[in-house]
Design a protein around this nucleic acid. Structure first.
Ligand code: NAD
Ligand code: NAD
Lengths: 210, 210
DNA sequence: ACAAATTTGTTAATTTTTTAACAATGTCCC
DNA sequence: GGGACATTGTTAAAAAATTAACAAATTTGT
């Protein structure tokens, strides 16, 4: 599709920011934006914006700038968001429930296509209009709907076990919210989100000025 | 305190991982660990572990390794976690509620010291044993308890407004969960956590194999 | 039509981060 | 006590990412 030799990890995150700004600009009826404006709005340098885009092609016009809608569409395609993605969540606790109801996912093309848990108390209940199902049904559902994405929101002690079940079922991309390192086989993309660590980043830097 | 010339941003995140492993090792009664073992458990290279630590001092013994408890204590000190930190949360919605109840924060030294919202329906209710208070009371509470850390869990449209209130009150480190760029003055550390973007990282990489 | 002003895409330079290499130090075993 | 082995701290090399610079393309004003 696009040349994907070696894209800096951070570029992907910035593309998300750019796309959000571009969508807003388009909705305001703006017909051209410069790398300067994109940079200002997203907190990076104009050179960075152009460099990031250059990995994937030429999307602007010299002397003019970019068309927001057009560039937005390109970026969404680069990110793989020119389609909708079903996502399963394992762990219907507080975090799992919050994520299940998060409208921001749907806005970016992600549909919650299943919530699983082991707690008999929770199975059968609904979060929004999705019923919590036992983990035993996970594989069937993943296969039936060719689901590729999963979110792990179970306690740390169960995270690896859940990841293994997901991988066996055919999940190819996983976000793990449990504060523990889990391993996945080649070909499965894993991302850990450690919220306590985010706070620690702050305290580390506050410490600098002591 | 420590020399802090220029520490890679990623180092801070890795220190969190190391510390978690070291705590476990210590609790198992293990008396020495090597950079090799730390690396294996946290998914990095041994050289990386030693380099990360070298920014801050010498914590091991050549030919031997590190004492888990000792190194754990050092790292916690480096991260600024040799004390407890009160944290306020603004936005008592689904995410704010989940975060308020998250035991993982307390385990790392963070205490939820206030939850604020504007919704009259929510003010006065309790999450766990903390009462949701109106945002108007934020400044008073922050000043009274010298609170330095805040979490923003309000809709994107209100994020900047809330950040401004926090900064005015004296908050020095902020985590923003709203999918929007907000700005803070010099001297305030800001971190954005964009969960949709995490999923997009996955779809981007899944796209590679198409 | 042409000069001045913009703004991109791309290449080069710089900076930052990671990885590798190895001398210094310590343990273990005979 | 000495040689084989292990493991750190540190320096050097390599790789990756960011920033800067500038030629090419476009628009605007005269
Ligand atoms: N609550 C937060 O704000 C928050 C923030 C960051 C990280 N986390 C992490 O996310 C995870 C979930 O946190 P939480 O607060 O929602 O916890 P929780 O205890 O409220 O929910 C965990 C859920 O997982 C289910 N579960 C346990 N083992 C399971 C298994 N093997 N298969 C399927 N489901 C299983 C439990 O029944 C429960 O419903 C934890 O690892 C936590 O550290 C939570
Ligand atoms: N729910 C999730 O899992 C999730 C995940 C990632 C990011 N987010 C982001 O976190 C934020 C909160 O999400 P949510 O799902 O909890 O939304 P929510 O609507 O459930 O809660 C938002 C809360 O903020 C309060 N609020 C609004 N304006 C305020 C103001 N000016 N001052 C104080 N409080 C105010 C509202 O009264 C409400 O209680 C959003 O920006 C969302 O995009 C949510």
């Amino acid at each position: 599709m696009f040349k994907k030799f070696k894209i800096p990890e951070a570029t992907v995150g910035r593309l998300t920011s750019y796309s959000r700004f571009l969508k807003e600009a388009d909705e305001k009826g703006i017909s051209t934006v410069s790398s300067q404006q994109i940079a200002k709005a997203t907190g990076v340098t104009p050179a960075q914006v152009r460099k990031d885009l250059a990995y994937f092609g030429e999307f602007g016009t010299r002397g003019v700038g970019y068309n927001p809608r057009e560039l937005y569409n390109y970026i969404m395609k680069i990110l793989g968001l020119d389609r909708r993605w079903p996502v399963i969540i394992v762990g219907a606790g507080r975090l799992g429930a919050a994520l299940s109801m998060y409208r921001g996912f749907a806005e970016r093309g992600f549909d919650i296509a299943g919530i699983f848990d082991v707690d008999p108390e929770k199975i059968g209940r609904k979060i929004g209009d999705i019923e919590i199902r036992p983990v035993e049904e996970l594989a069937e559902r993943v296969k039936e709907h060719s689901i590729k994405l999963g979110i792990v929101a179970v306690p740390a002690a169960s995270a690896q076990e859940v990841v293994d079940i997901m991988v066996d079922a055919g999940i190819k991309g996983i976000i793990n919210f449990a504060p523990v390192n889990v391993s996945v086989p080649e070909g499965v993309v894993l991302r850990r989100v450690d919220l306590a660590s985010q706070l620690e980043y702050l305290t580390f830097h506050l410490g600098e000025s002591r």
